[in-house]
Every structure is written in C-alpha cells, then in structure tokens.
C-alpha cells in the first residue's frame, strides 16, 4: 500500500498541475465574458510541443539545452517531497522546508541562466527582473514557513501539515499573517499578477515569458510544465501548511481518497482567488513590486514576534 501511495505522491504534481493552469485561464475567460478554452488545453499544448521540432540559437551553450531538464526535475522532486493528500511520509529526508525552498531556487538559477544564454536583450532583462524579485521573495518565503515551523516546532513539512492545532488558540493571528505573507510570495514566485503577466507577450513587461522566449519544442514544453508544477507546489504548500484540514494521517483508502479531494478543492479555491485578482487588478509597475515583497517580509516578521509559546 505504501509503495502504491508513494507512486501516486511522486506523480501527483506533474499529473494534475496543467489542469489548474487551464482552470485559471478558464475562470479569467469567464470574467471577461468569453467562453475560453477547455481546462484541458494545457495538456494538449504540452503534448503538442513535445512532438515538435526545435530551433536553438547558435549563441546558446549547453546551459540552454540543460536548463529545461533541471528546472523540470527540480519541480518534480519538490512536488514529491511536500505534503499533498497524506502526511505519512514524515521520514522523507528531502521534505525539510529549507531544502524545498533552496531546491526551487536552484530551478530559478538555471531558468535565469537560460534566459541570459542566448544573448537576447529580452532574456537578459527578464532574468535581471526575475532575480530581483526572487531575491526578495526568498526572504519572505523562508520567514513565512519559519512562522509555522516555529509554531509546530519542526521544519519537516509533513510534520507541520500533520498538526491540526495551528489555527487555534493564540496561534490564529500569526498563522493568518504568515499566510498572507506566503500568498504574496506565491504570486511572486509563480509569476502571477501583480508581479508578472503570464498571458502577455508585450516585450517591455514580461518576465517569465521573456526568459523562455527562445525555447521551442520539447524544451518549451518542459519549461511550461515546470511553471505549472511550481504554481501547484506553492498553492499546495499554502493550502496544506496553513489550513491543514482533511489531509490523511494514515494509509487507509477512505482518508486518502478524502485527502485527494480536499487538497484539490483547496487548490481550486486558491485558483479562484488568483484568477479573481488577475481579473480585477492591473500589473504593478516594476519598482513598486519591492514594496509588496517587503510588506510580505514585515508580515512574517510580525507573525514571528506574535508567537508566544508557554
């Protein structure tokens, strides 16, 4: 049974993540009174790209060729190491919150290098912007997860998700503040509004899309898939660490099935919120983004200072 659940855990994130990118697009389309593409369109896009020929710039080096694989593998590993629908993998030694954050940072590192590798001005500036945002976002990423780690007394993500008393007693306020802080990080790291416009191809504003501008074929598919995975990972972390309800604590079929459904519902709610924000706000000017990120750091700092353990 544990092997079976383990296999599901390992393949869960890459298997379902494109669905939620499609879902957000669908919700946004409905907000704009459009019918929109099917929620499964992302799967079709990835499948199509995987079978296309590629063009690679003559200026590019092996970094450009390697980066999509690294970026994708990183999200798969992290996806398998975080609590999704069950908390039984507490012994997993790659589910420490710091190794999760820094492994994701490794993906960002190669993504930014790939953006610079082709010598295009778009890629270069996009990498510069991406690193600027993620440098600040990493600070509040660590701090917001440290808040819950401090409440539970463990940095293991499964142990944090396993504890049900995080929102009760005197921990309610710190948890909520840390969640808002984390939510800003989520938007920043996954390139959503108000940080980045995932739908844009306007050269002056794009960040993530400009970094992968020179990609085509299977490498583009991997990059898009990795971005979907990253969004799902961040949403799942937000859903399971700050609102740890419904997650299975053993390996019986019923709790696991409930766990799967609950985590999907929680992430659908997150998608609704993200799509709503994207429909009603405009993208921020680049130099206003640090204000938002520093707000996020301050929120976490306040949350940590509010935690009083007896």
């Amino acid at each position: 049974m544990i092997i079976f659940i383990g296999i599901i855990q390992a393949f869960f994130v890459p298997a379902v993540s494109p669905l939620f990118i499609g879902l957000i697009k669908k919700i946004k389309a409905r907000f704009q009174n459009r019918q929109g593409a099917s929620v499964f369109q992302s799967y079709r896009d990835i499948w199509k790209l995987l079978h296309k020929d590629e063009v690679i710039s003559s200026d590019a080096s092996w970094i450009f060729r390697l980066a999509p694989f690294i970026v994708f593998i990183v999200t798969v590993i992290v996806g398998a190491s975080i609590p999704l629908f069950t908390t039984v993998f507490k012994q997993l030694l790659t589910s420490d919150l710091l190794i999760v954050i820094y492994t994701l940072a490794g993906g960002t590192f190669f993504l930014a290098l790939a953006g610079l590798d082709t010598g295009s001005a778009f890629g270069g500036f996009a990498s510069s912007r991406e690193m600027t945002i993620s440098a600040l976002a990493e600070g509040s990423f660590v701090l917001s997860l440290f808040t819950v780690a401090l409440i539970i007394g463990s940095t293991n993500l499964f142990v944090i998700a396993d504890s049900k008393n995080i929102l009760f007693n005197n921990f309610f306020l710190p948890t909520i503040l840390a969640f808002f802080s984390f939510f800003i990080v989520m938007l920043a790291e996954s390139g959503r509004f108000p940080f980045d416009n995932p739908a844009t191809h306007l050269e002056l504003t794009m960040i993530h899309e400009a970094m992968i501008l020179e990609y085509s074929g299977k490498r583009l598919a991997l990059m898009e898939w990795a971005a979907a995975n990253k969004f799902f990972i961040l949403a799942a972390l937000g859903a399971n660490l700050f609102f740890p309800w419904g997650i299975a604590q053993n390996l019986n079929l019923l709790p696991v099935a409930i766990g799967v459904i609950v985590v999907l519902v929680k992430i659908i709610i997150m998608c609704l919120v993200v799509a709503f924000i994207e429909s009603v706000t405009a993208k921020f000017r680049f130099f206003r983004l640090p204000d938002l990120l520093i707000t996020s750091i301050v929120l976490s700092a306040v949350a940590i200072s509010l935690i009083q353990k007896i």
Binding site: F109, L113, L116, D117, A135, V142, F146, I297
Partner: peptide, 27 residues
C-alpha cells in the same frame, strides 16, 4: 538575523547569476 540571512541567500543567487552569465554566457 533570520531576515538578513534569508535575503542574503536570495541576493547571492542573483549575484552569481550575474557573475556566471555575464562572464561565460551569450556572445
């Protein structure tokens, strides 16, 4: 101290993207 260590990690990553890419990548 924690804020500074966390932000330092992010900024160091940005700095080494710069150092490696400007030195070795592109034209």
């Amino acid at each position: 101290a924690t804020i500074s260590l966390a932000v330092t990690g992010g900024l160091a990553l940005a700095c080494f993207v710069k150092a490696f890419a400007i030195t070795f990548l592109a034209r």
